[in-house]
Simulated scan of single mutants.
Amino acid sequence: MSGALVPTAADGGGERESRENAPSAARETFDYVVTVTNRGPSTAREVRVTDRLPPSLEFVSSRDGCTASGRTAVCGPLASLAVGASHAWVITVRLAADYRGDGTDIVNEAVVDASTSDPDSRNNSTSLTGLEIPPSARTADLSLEKTALLAKGREHVRAGEKFTYLITVRNQGPATARRLQVTDRLPASLVLLSSPDDCEVPKGGDRLLVVCPSLDRLAAGEKAEFRITVRAVTADRAAAQPPDDICTPIENIARVTSATFDPDLSDNANGRGTTGPGGGRLCLVSEGGREQHGGHDGRHEGHEDGREDGHHGRDDEHQDGREHHDAREQHGGRGDLAHSGTAVPAWLLWTSAALVAGGAALRTAFRTRRP
């Protein structure tokens, strides 16, 4: 008997998994076709093939009933194989999650045996070195940036204001990235209004999770852009970074995933505090913002003016009080002792007035008699 291995790319066949379910693996699949031929001199009985996969490959499935234990796949047994006849089994495999090569170092070996005695077992095994891996199954380093598009000179937004985010995904290669997915979890301070690129909140899903249409592929060196328009609702006081006097940071993280292995996941999402127009933080300013500080100063100035007006008012009142007190004394009424509130008897006022009048007369007489 003799055997032969013929690998073919199984594009669209076999089991496929998303990048989220297997974050460290490129999920391309490949078919190995194992063919057995009976060269005689008699019919072979209970023919079976054993394929020991290398560490770089993982068993996925077999449309011909082959099964696997770990990395060892077994096909058959086939009840009989006539002289000169051939039989083929297809084994579907995929690259191991930690494989980083280009496929040239992959060696796969298969062995055939039967219950019938074989006069020449030297050709009962075969091996194949090298597996042609398409660029889409190799490494693709993706990165994502997110920027708020504001009017020139603006660095913050106010509650109730709408604006647009630009999400940019770049493939830094070296291979084409397959089945890309961009998601954006909005903070409670933002509400999605629309998207010209059909990003949306899926019905029945998380109302804060925006999902953009998936891309089948993104070639090395190319970029993809998504825009979402949102409205700022209110300052998110639960933000991780405490707000200062005029700024509540809007922390809005988007990320990209892919079915192609990505060697560096650290740049697959925008960093915190980087979505502002200049690459810094984006601030949400409450209604009034900086003007509130000007209003505070105005209230302070008004307070100063009121204090001055009140001071002048009290001076006028005090002056009026003194004139009123003098008038009461001139009419001989009752008066108040200063700062005591004690009433002054009327006879004391009359006596004081008489003494003053007498003193004035004496002084007058004295002055007239002076030489």
Rank of each mutant, 00 (worst) to 15 (best):
T72R: 15
V60R: 13
A97T: 01
A85W: 02
T72L: 14
I91N: 01
A110E: 10
D98Y: 09
G103P: 08
S86C: 07
D102K: 02
A85G: 07
D51V: 07
D51R: 06
T104V: 13
A68E: 10
L81C: 07
V111F: 01
L53N: 04
A85H: 10
G65T: 09
P77W: 01
T67W: 04
S62Q: 14
T72P: 14
G101V: 00
A110Y: 02
Y99I: 05
D51H: 00
V90C: 02
I106W: 12
G76P: 11
H87S: 14
R71K: 13
D98T: 14
V107H: 08
A97Y: 00
A97S: 00
V49M: 11
A97G: 06
A88K: 03
A110F: 02
T50N: 09
Y99V: 06
G84F: 00
V60L: 10
D102M: 01
C75S: 10
D51Y: 06
R100P: 01
A82L: 06
V60E: 12
V107D: 15
G101F: 03
A96P: 00
A82H: 04
V111L: 03
S80N: 09
L81N: 05
L78G: 11
T72F: 09
D51C: 01
G101T: 01
I106D: 01
Y99K: 02
A85R: 07
L57K: 06
V90H: 07
S69G: 15
R94H: 12
C66F: 03
T67G: 12
V74R: 09
D98L: 05
V74G: 08
A110W: 00
S69H: 15
R100S: 07
R63A: 15
T104Q: 13
T67C: 05
D105K: 12
D98F: 11
A82T: 07
R94K: 15
S56N: 01
R63C: 09
D51M: 08
Y99G: 08
P55H: 02
R94M: 12
V74P: 03
V90E: 05
Y99H: 04
A96T: 07
D64N: 14
I106R: 03
V49G: 09
A82S: 04
V107I: 14
G103M: 03
G76C: 13
L53I: 08
R71V: 06
H87Y: 11
S62M: 14
A85I: 03
G103W: 06
H87V: 15
G76V: 10
W89L: 08
G76K: 04
L57T: 08
S80G: 03
E58K: 08
V60I: 09
V74W: 09
A68M: 07
L81D: 10
P77T: 04
E109D: 05
D98V: 04
R100A: 10
L78Y: 12
P54A: 15
A88C: 10
A79M: 08
F59G: 08
P77N: 03
P55V: 11
F59S: 11
T92H: 04
H87N: 15
W89C: 05
V107E: 13
S61E: 13
L78S: 06
